[in-house]
Design a binder for these strands. Sequence first.
DNA 1: GTTCGTCAACGAACGCTGTTCGTTCCGGAC
DNA 2: GTCCGGAACGAACAGCGTTCGTTGACGAAC
Lengths: 244, 244
Amino acid sequence: MLVTTAEDRPEPPWWTPRKTRAPRRSLSREVIVAAALRMLRAEGVDGVTMRRVAAELGTGPASLYAHVANKDELMDLVFDEIAGDIPIPEPDPARWREQIVALWTDVYHALSRNGDIAHTALARVPLGPNSMRISEFTLALLYAAGVPRQAVAWSVDVLALFVSANAVEDTISADLERQGRDRAEYYEKVGDYFASLPAEQFPMTVELGPDLSAGDKAERFAFGLDMIVEGLASRIPRDAPDRR
Amino acid sequence: MLVTTAEDRPEPPWWTPRKTRAPRRSLSREVIVAAALRMLRAEGVDGVTMRRVAAELGTGPASLYAHVANKDELMDLVFDEIAGDIPIPEPDPARWREQIVALWTDVYHALSRNGDIAHTALARVPLGPNSMRISEFTLALLYAAGVPRQAVAWSVDVLALFVSANAVEDTISADLERQGRDRAEYYEKVGDYFASLPAEQFPMTVELGPDLSAGDKAERFAFGLDMIVEGLASRIPRDAPDRR
DNA sequence: GTTCGTCAACGAACGCTGTTCGTTCCGGAC
DNA sequence: GTCCGGAACGAACAGCGTTCGTTGACGAAC
């Protein structure tokens, strides 16, 4: 009697054939975040979907859920990854204004460069380790500069909200580019709209016309940031305690 | 030979029977916007979908597209509807600070009360008639107060961004409530998280602990708005021209 | 060596989204 | 009456985030 191997044995046709499948690939939170970040930079936040991230990693969307709770968590992780690229200087209270402006301008640029990830900062308070570093630095610097305690405590929120909002607004431009549309044309249309408004009802808008859209995004942002920093400075008492 | 009417003539069974349908109802942009606004107030911006708006009006989503180009346009219209409820005072340059604070605080409350519609303001510059009224008032008042021309022109953007960001942040609280979760519990958890951070790395965060979450939203917003207004005031030259 | 439990990886499917396409209906103009 | 344009409509498309049940891989215990 001949000995036969399993392959030699014919099976009834109603048995389910064993599936042939590529070996399972191994994922990690890091590679998922990295893929999402690449996608974010290339296509903006709307381009980041679980399916597309999974496809870039050669798997299916369900596999991501073993590593991140949901899409929100993934976006929070991506945000903190971006925050980790922002350099934090050694605090020098004598130059607190300069340092606050420099740091939060860096934050603004980091967010602007990464689609509208700043939406994440608005929808959920950023509490990742890298975000906390930036917060800590700001708190320490302002405190050492003599800003009153409660103002210090609230300042990070003010700065983060303003910076994030500016970064989100930048997506208007970025989206236009992505759609292959001309930015200058869009702003020209807005300008035309302003100019077309009835002057009896909108005299200042019509008169200030070109000033309203003057300056580039960085200039406009810097102006607003300066307002806030000026406000913080006005809170420092003349006889501020030396907290260094 | 008898005369028969159309109803009397038997039809082949393979003909498609005439559909019986309720009479068409008539829609307008106004009723669509009103329905969307009701839904926004009840359920937040995520609760507003074309299907749900249409269902509330007893029709299907495709019918809405005869009146609004797309969902973005609908949300812009809803935004401007909300802006229309904000009272605009008679400008008094002698009290410009007070009036700016009052008006933009009203804007903030109007936005906060209406889910995160402020997302719309961040994603697309609000250019509806009611938004332009607020903008015009702000421009005129700051100009009359002596703020330099370029600063006037840029100020509306700064104010709008800051206010909108604050209103969007309010959705964190609103969403918690909507989910039947306890707000205080969430903020307590955040506080616990701050307190649990390693003190060597986050000394200020740990030390300022309770101050960080002190105050309610309105207080924190007022603090930030005051920073900006202070910044604007600092731009008025001592010998400001009288522009009244 | 085998067996078992755990968790990562996976595919199918669910319930939902905004929008388009083709059809029907309605009202106004002729 | 007919014709036309636009509102209203249903079906369907392509996509979304997520869940559920199954499979596979691995390490620990025996």
